[in-house]
Design a protein around this nucleic acid. Structure first.
Lengths: 189, 189
DNA sequence: GTCTATAGTGCGATAGAC
DNA sequence: GTCTATCGCACTATAGAC
């Protein structure tokens, strides 16, 4: 066994979720997080570029899933088809077992404006990643951006529903319904 | 004439736009902004809750316009109708004369992640304000949220287009086109 | 208007693994 | 010796408390 406990990053993330839930984001200092994880403040900032980031490091995987779904779609797929593939891919990251965790994390974020800001930035990153993937497929800029933004709009609302829904319908299904509802809202006439 | 120059708030906003554009958001300290506006740091934080907020204080007006458009729609208006009314209302805030200003402000924000975060939070606030207005009209929660998010998606993409478009079509028109395009993307089939 | 806690950065030191 | 993870310390700016 080495000089240090393994997985300092994981311990910091766990400490953050616990302490933020218990006493709030602003009432928790980085020093306290570090202490609970058995490292120093300096080490915290080696793993996370800022205090908020400790809750958001999983976004990279989500983004690849989102983009790969776009890249893997058949050549004649429409932007709408690609969006559905992306939404289905993202849903696989949130199986029923992760609902309790997701709910706790969501509650922590909802309680603090600066955490919401970070979450929104990450979601906007997903939207533009999907837009880029569509653009690479030959979809013109505005339509690609719009599709990316629409996908995120569906995801956001469906995710909130998935968290709240007591009978636990799966996220993919909720997203399909939301997408249909969006089609209804934006239908001409 | 009084002891102080009038409109300290306006001078701080102008100083911020100039200095952020010139040397970047992070390279500009609040002390420098305050000095250029002829006030102290303390005065800056009296007007703006944080350094970023100096670029975003106009959001309240936008939000009322957004909400009022919803409240003022006829009783039998669909969520889609309300969304169009809200988008038309927001477009009146961005006449052709403000394009140069909007473009500069947008460039400053685009150059800094934390400013993007703040902008996204303000836009999310607009989305939920519209959702609340729809909810008050009897639209059920998820459909109301979805409509709010869709309106913001259209606004974001249309606004970027309006800023970039060299021949200056007006924002309301671009938004109508974007909405139609969104209807096409989300159409079933 | 003054004081202070906290976030976040830069750089060098240290302790182990190889 | 090299490489990597961690720590220690000094420092600035934001933001809130007093």
């Amino acid at each position: 066994m080495g000089r240090w406990q393994p997985d300092a990053q994981g311990r910091l993330q766990q400490a953050a979720l616990d302490l933020f839930a218990e006493r709030g984001f602003e009432q928790t200092t980085v020093a306290e997080l570090a202490q609970r994880a058995g490292v120093t403040e300096r080490t915290f900032f080696r793993y996370f570029s800022d205090k908020r980031e400790v809750l958001f490091s999983g976004e990279a995987e989500l983004r690849s899933a989102f983009v790969d779904a776009g890249a893997g779609a058949p050549r004649d797929a429409t932007p709408g088809d690609v969006m559905i593939a992306a939404l289905d891919a993202v849903a696989t990251f949130f199986p029923a077992e992760r609902r309790a965790f997701a709910r706790q994390r969501h509650a922590v974020i909802r309680a603090n404006a600066s955490l919401q800001e970070r979450e929104l930035l990450k979601l906007a990153g997903l939207a533009s990643a999907l837009a880029d993937a569509l653009h690479a497929r030959g979809v013109r800029g505005p339509a690609a951006s719009l599709t990316g933004e629409a996908a995120i709009a569906v995801f956001k609302v469906a995710f909130a529903q998935w968290i709240a829904d007591p009978d636990g319908r799966d996220l993919a299904r909720i997203q399909r319904e939301m997408l249909a509802a969006l089609g209804h809202v934006t239908a001409p006439g």
